[in-house]
Nucleic acid binder design. Structure first.
Length: 424
RNA sequence: GGAGAGAUGGGUGAGUGGCUGAAACCAACGGUUUGCUAAACCGUCGUACGGGUCAUUCUGUACCGGGGGUUCGAAUCCCCCUCUCUCCGCCA
């Protein structure tokens, strides 16, 4: 969420910047500034009353000790009135504070200046495109047919055991998954990321910290008996490591990576987009997360984009990098680059990574700060994260693009991880 | 699942109604001393929100797991919740 003081001091700027996200913030901002002013006024009065109350209490204590009981009783007379007033003011304050907060969380993050104008995915800016679209042999088929042909992924079996969107990987399919996970984790470690193995279930506080709660609970699986949520991405548990933490400035940037299974309800998804591996309820992903100094967070973003670029290039997949336009960005992001690989049999680009700088938007909620080296005061840090990478669509593109009449070729870089160079 | 104990600042840990935003020690930071390191000594050493000078400062309030209550006054007493630990049971 946006910082309250920032909204109060820059209402016009907030409204203007959010126009790029096609979000009309004028009413909310106006309500926030009006309520905040009222809130401050109430606090001033309440604090004054509390100060007087504290003073009286102290006096009563002294008088009692001196045995001046009557004077003490006299001093008490005023407290009843003050007490009522304080109670009322505190209630008003809490109510308005809650109102301000619930308005505050409605405001999306401000897009960075270089975010392109636009509303739909068509308006995203292609900043890079690399790799040749493969020419597939005759009778080439999409990955779901390949999965069946070589018996490496069984979608029907997943339906039997759990339901749609929970595939069962078998044999070389399972081994290829495992190879990809290890490859991605090793690459991240070589780029300086600390490997983390996080919990797959999180509590409400964590869901709130990264912004899944309160509004996006419909996208998470909820274990109601224990009130825990299955993670939709490792971003949630990993970023929450730093919830309510003040880190040392010299320790920035903090770089973490984690593999996890990810669970998404994907309520409302349907049609050809969900065919095969294109959209699943459970999938594997290696995530990279950085906690950065505000002044250098965009350098860190570039570094993360370069890291992901290295991955898709080593996998020899044709890819493009998009800078998302204002209308296609997530609520929480200030700048996002999407990576898409070309899936040659489906003949379409598939999103395999999304790398974002959230600036202080997440950190505000998380209360994640660093201590400034000069002022020694806590300052809100910047958070960034990206997929590096999500497996299913990588798998889809690898299977489709590398199919030959004799089987599916494994990219060289994965052969040592797989222990085979061909699925046949 | 059953029984018991507990939750205090970065850590250990004192504190059972006012002089406690909180002892002491450790860690950290700054300094003195020193050829260097160490030791010793001195000092600093919470967060949030608000108000005034808006520059370094000054000041009010809140916070001792969370919420509520008693009281002029609560870390301290009462109630509820959450979590942690120990023992027993079960178990990868």
């Amino acid at each position: 969420m946006l910082n309250l003081k920032f909204i109060q001091e820059n209402p016009e700027l907030v409204i203007a910047k959010l126009k790029k996200k096609h979000f009309d913030a004028s009413l909310i901002v106006q309500q926030i500034t009006a309520l905040s002013a009222k809130k401050n006024e109430i606090q001033a009065t309440a604090d004054k009353n509390k100060a007087e109350m504290n003073k009286i209490s102290k006096e009563v204590g002294l008088l009692m000790r001196e045995g001046k009981k009557e004077e003490a009783e006299a001093a008490k007379i005023r407290t009843a009135e003050l007490k009522d007033s304080i109670k009322q003011l505190d209630e008003d304050f809490a109510r308005i504070d809650q109102e301000v907060f619930s308005l505050q969380v409605l405001l999306p993050n401000l897009p960075a200046d270089i975010v392109p104008e636009g509303r739909t995915p068509e308006d995203n800016l292609v900043v890079k495109r690399s790799g040749d679209i493969p020419v597939l042999p005759e009778n080439s088929v999409p990955h779901w047919d390949l999965a069946k042909k070589y018996d490496i992924i069984d979608f029907e079996l997943g339906v039997k055991i759990t339901g749609a969107g929970f595939p069962v990987y078998k044999g070389k399919g399972a081994r290829l998954q495992r190879a990809l996970i290890n490859f991605f984790l090793d690459e991240a470690r070589n780029s300086g990321y600390l490997e983390i193995q996080p919990p797959y279930m999180v509590n409400e506080d964590s869901g709130f910290g990264t912004g899944q709660l309160p509004d996006k609970e419909g996208q998470m699986y909820h274990a109601t008996a224990d009130n825990l949520y299955l993670i939709p991405t490792a971003e949630v548990p990993v970023t929450n490591i730093y919830r309510d933490v003040i880190v040392e400035s010299k320790d920035l940037p903090l770089k973490n990576t984690a593999y996890s299974a990810c669970f998404r309800r994907e309520a409302g998804s349907y049609g050809k987009d969900v065919r095969g591996l294109n959209r699943l309820h459970q999938f594997d992903k290696v995530e990279i997360v950085q906690i950065a100094h505000p002044e250098t967070s965009y350098d860190r973003l570039d570094e993360m984009v370069a890291h992901v670029t290295g991955l898709v290039e080593k996998l020899e997949l044709p890819y493009r990098i998009l800078r998302l336009c204002g209308g296609d960005m997530s609520f929480t992001s200030a700048l996002t680059y999407d990576f898409e690989v070309f899936s040659a049999a489906q003949e379409k680009w598939l999103e395999v990574s999304s790398v974002s700088n959230f600036e202080s938007f997440q950190a505000n909620r998380l209360k994640l700060r660093y201590r400034d080296e000069v002022t020694k005061k806590p300052v809100v840090a910047h958070t960034l994260n990206g997929s590096a990478l999500a497996l299913p669509r990588i798998m889809a593109a690898l299977l489709e693009n590398n199919q030959t009449p004799n089987g599916i070729c494994i990219p060289k870089v994965l052969v040592p991880y797989c222990g085979f160079d061909m699925i046949d």
